[in-house]
Simulated assay, not measured.
Amino acid sequence: MKLQLLRNATLKLDYAGLTILIDPDFAPKHSRPSFTGRSPNPMTDLPVSTDEILRGVELVLVSHLHADHFDKVAQDLVPKHLPLVCQPGDEARIRSFGFSDVTPLTDELTIDGIQLTRREGNHGSGPVLEKMGQVMGFSIEADGEPSIYWAGDTILYPPVRETIATTQPDIIITHSCGAKWDGIHIVMDAEQTVEVCGIAPDHSKVIATHMEALDHATVSRHDLQAYANAHDIAKHRLIIPDDGETLHLTAPNS
């Protein structure tokens, strides 16, 4: 498989012969308001053009409808005929954007030999949960490919730990910028990301994304790497890709 981090949560995945776009946010740098007063968002440009990002895409996955996961620019530019998988409850709104082939991931779904399984997520804790709304993660599996657990916009809490323990994924993709809302973490921070490395199977690789793009983040790539180093997490165990970087990954037994 080939995995390219574009920016924040936006990924392009070549997997089992299918090219998948995950959570497209195509907004130009500084085109949306600040969350904290530190900077307009997103804080960085996309590393490549939207034409290049969309080239070859055959399936779109949208975890939820926050602007940094499916923004107005992407809603306009992503071809409306492409099959799009979303969380239950978002399908009507996505169809209102003009998309014609929208399927909610209620439990499991198989597309061209690729199995998608919905996973639970908590986009924060306590009183902030209602403000953030429902989100989902998902597992991706296919014969001959590494199994993926894309945790999404969630903190580390019991259902995430249970998913890791029961599915034993080869690849775990975390959102690790430590973003806060009303002073409460709404995604994983450095401590929780390193904890994921500790509870993951020995063969797993943890790929930390969703960093250095939004001004309510509290953890940079450098911060996360320094924390991981201090806790003896090997660099082959925790991968922190740059925007635009492409990773080539194989199943452990291949």
Score class of each variant (00 low, 15 high):
2 K>A: 12
4 Q>R: 13
4 Q>A: 11
5 L>F: 12
8 N>H: 15
11 L>V: 11
18 L>M: 15
19 T>D: 00
20 I>Y: 13
22 I>F: 14
24 P>D: 13
24 P>H: 02
28 P>C: 06
31 S>V: 06
33 P>C: 05
34 S>H: 05
36 T>F: 09
38 R>G: 07
39 S>T: 04
40 P>L: 01
41 N>Q: 01
43 M>R: 01
44 T>E: 13
44 T>P: 00
46 L>N: 09
46 L>H: 05
48 V>T: 15
49 S>G: 11
51 D>I: 00
51 D>V: 00
52 E>D: 15
53 I>E: 04
55 R>P: 03
59 L>Y: 05
62 V>F: 03
63 S>V: 00
66 H>M: 08
66 H>G: 06
68 D>T: 03
71 D>A: 02
71 D>F: 08
75 Q>K: 12
78 V>N: 02
82 L>I: 08
86 C>T: 09
86 C>S: 06
87 Q>T: 03
89 G>D: 02
90 D>A: 15
94 I>N: 07
97 F>R: 07
97 F>N: 09
99 F>G: 10
99 F>N: 06
100 S>A: 15
101 D>Q: 14
101 D>E: 15
101 D>N: 13
103 T>K: 14
107 D>M: 02
108 E>R: 13
108 E>D: 05
108 E>C: 07
110 T>Y: 10
112 D>S: 15
118 R>L: 08
122 N>Y: 05
122 N>T: 08
124 G>N: 07
124 G>A: 09
127 P>Y: 10
130 E>N: 02
131 K>T: 02
131 K>E: 04
132 M>F: 05
132 M>K: 09
132 M>P: 09
133 G>R: 02
133 G>T: 08
135 V>D: 07
135 V>Q: 05
135 V>F: 01
136 M>G: 05
136 M>T: 13
137 G>S: 00
137 G>D: 01
143 D>G: 11
143 D>M: 03
145 E>V: 00
146 P>E: 12
146 P>L: 04
147 S>G: 10
147 S>F: 07
151 A>L: 07
151 A>N: 07
154 T>L: 10
155 I>G: 05
157 Y>M: 10
159 P>K: 11
164 I>A: 08
165 A>K: 14
167 T>Y: 05
170 D>V: 00
171 I>Y: 06
173 I>M: 10
174 T>M: 03
176 S>L: 06
176 S>D: 14
178 G>K: 09
184 I>T: 12
187 V>T: 11
188 M>P: 06
189 D>Y: 00
190 A>R: 09
196 V>Q: 08
197 C>V: 01
197 C>T: 06
202 D>V: 10
203 H>Y: 02
203 H>T: 10
204 S>C: 07
207 I>W: 08
207 I>L: 10
208 A>R: 04
211 M>G: 13
213 A>C: 04
216 H>G: 01
218 T>K: 01
221 R>V: 11
223 D>C: 09
223 D>Q: 13
224 L>S: 08
227 Y>R: 07
229 N>C: 05
233 I>R: 12
237 R>N: 11
239 I>W: 12
242 D>H: 15
251 A>K: 08
253 N>S: 06
254 S>H: 01
